[in-house]
Design a protein around this nucleic acid. Structure first.
Lengths: 330, 330
DNA sequence: TTGTACGCGTTATCAA
DNA sequence: TTGATAACGCGTACAA
């Protein structure tokens, strides 16, 4: 690989002037600029990114912290973020935290070491107090996670409204004995609290109770969904609909329903979440909440790129709309 | 961040000796080593990876070129490669080539610029002549792709045998009018040629013909599968089984089969490929070819790590076994 | 407008 | 065993 010194030799022009040409500085005479450009051309010269990085100029990589790539929600998120970043010649580094606090901090440390120039957090396990100090070393933002601090920009979907819309849909379809299954906790201030609040609001509006025995927390996988449906069917007093936290859990329910000869939606309606491709592969196909992952991914990339140049972003809170896709399971 | 100079000041020991301690050089007295280590500890010193990289030592990132992250096959591959690499503190950089030759070369260029220290190609669009020159700049290997050159290490699954096993399964189940649907081409030397050969071998052994009107090429998505089933049903002379190139295509077939009231496997058997999670979500669940993506990913990572230290790998060709998972669609 | 000299944080060479 | 010094490739005060 040719270096700047090679260009100097070939063109007979000083290093600083060559550097100016490379970086489009205004004060260079046309003649010298031409000569330098020609030398660069002939040598197929490209500035060494590592050297630039050491000088402190150059932003070329963004780290994305997610729980797991194999979750389609996140693989789509990766896709859209990567597409947009690559338009700006910025590389995306995948970091699977596997929901471990230690790994999360380990990855944030890469920002400190200037291994990445910014970090998009699409998973947050640590308290904000542990994360805020990293802001000193470079831009950090939240994507699909919501912890209001006033310091960290957030790009997210309106989960409260999403849950509200979902429950409204069930109610309008005539279901009133509604069970709830979430990937988070059913606490005032835990994970997925926004969805919980949306559920509560819709239920309260109709004067419907949320029955504790019909609430399932920390459910994520197809296997989890299978199990929940089985437990539901052992109850004497059963719900007539269940609102799940993900299409995968809902898909698991369709499986055990088939095994147990339970009819969906006649015996129980199942409402998914995410609108993943598999939502139309199950039998019956899932009614589900559509999340605009594509928009969210692109927006997150845009915000990060802006963060590279701006000091304080003008807008700290980006919220994207959510809609329901009606299929056959409700 | 503390630098080596800070350690020098704090410990009162020269830069070279400090560097020796950092890199575990033998010739350092116990006393000085202790002092240096203590200073490092107190300053929470970590060597700057960028500086190390510029010096030419340090391997810390591997690029993975894939067609698309959203394809579950590749998201699983990413998962397993990333897991193994992260055990060695090596970062994985995702590169979606979107099947573009230009993008592929653009990514390979990152090796030349020392932006990544090695490249795993899980997609190959360019001719090998275009790729071989990059070997000069660092390790390049193939994963799940097969182009024998003698220069580039290959980790892959035995696709010829996989296709052979699949067709054997259909034949043993009594199907004899077998259609074929591939993501590649049906040519002697094109993409997926190994699978084609496996198919041919199994068919010829039984004296069964491969009918051109029952061969579908370049089929990838759920939508593609839907369409193929529709076309099949417009034929006067129909097959009684179809061997597809991916579970997604097979899943698409189950969808249009339902729409057209075609029974699987009674009217037509459908054999998938990949054993993706969705294979047990379709109705009926798919019989499919299981590919050990986990082993392949880990092995690819191991081979790449070895490539960092060895000049010539002892083994250039790693081949992993494949098996069939029988469910309800055949 | 142009060029010289220095620094970014390491590691390697060489002489002591 | 130790330490002074050069070098990796680039950008930028500063002086001219």
């Amino acid at each position: 690989m040719a270096t700047i010194s090679d260009v100097v030799k070939k063109s007979g022009i000083s290093k600083s002037t060559v550097s100016r040409v490379i970086n489009n500085h205004p004060s260079v005479s046309e003649e010298k600029r031409r000569k330098v450009l020609q030398a660069m051309e002939e040598l197929a010269y490209t500035p060494n990114p590592t050297a630039r990085r050491m000088r402190g100029t150059l932003k070329s990589s963004v780290g994305l912290i997610i729980p797991n790539v194999t979750n389609p929600f996140f693989s789509y998120l990766i896709h859209h973020i990567e597409q947009r970043l690559s338009e700006h010649s910025i590389r995306l580094i995948i970091m699977q935290s596997s929901e471990s606090r230690e790994k999360e901090l380990e990855f944030l440390d890469l920002l400190k070491q200037k291994q990445v120039d910014g970090i998009i957090l699409a998973a947050v396990e640590n308290e904000m107090e542990a994360i805020l100090p990293y802001l000193e070393y470079g831009p950090v933002m939240l994507c699909n996670e919501y912890v209001q601090t006033g310091e960290i920009p957030i790009v997210r979907l309106d989960q409260e409204r999403a849950a509200y819309i979902g429950v409204r849909h069930l109610i309008e379809k005539g279901y009133r004995r509604i069970a709830y299954c979430t990937g988070g906790l059913f606490a005032e201030d835990g994970k997925d609290k926004d969805r919980n609040n949306g559920l509560r609001r819709a239920m309260e509006e109709e004067g419907l109770p949320i029955r504790p025995e019909w609430v399932f927390v920390d459910q994520h996988t197809i296997a989890d969904g299978r199990e929940v449906m089985r437990r539901l069917w052992q109850m004497d007093d059963r719900p007539d609909a269940i609102f799940t936290g993900s299409d995968e859990v809902a898909a698991g329910m369709t499986l055990s329903a088939r095994e147990l000869s339970i009819r969906i939606p006649e015996d129980i309606a199942v409402l998914g979440f995410d609108d993943q491709p598999l939502a139309e592969l199950t039998y019956p196909q899932l009614t589900t909440i559509h999340q605009p992952i594509d928009e969210m991914g692109r927006l997150a990339a845009d915000v990060m790129i802006r963060l590279f140049t701006e000091d304080k972003p003008q807008n700290m809170n980006y919220e994207l709309p959510i809609s329901i896709v009606e299929r056959q399971s409700t």
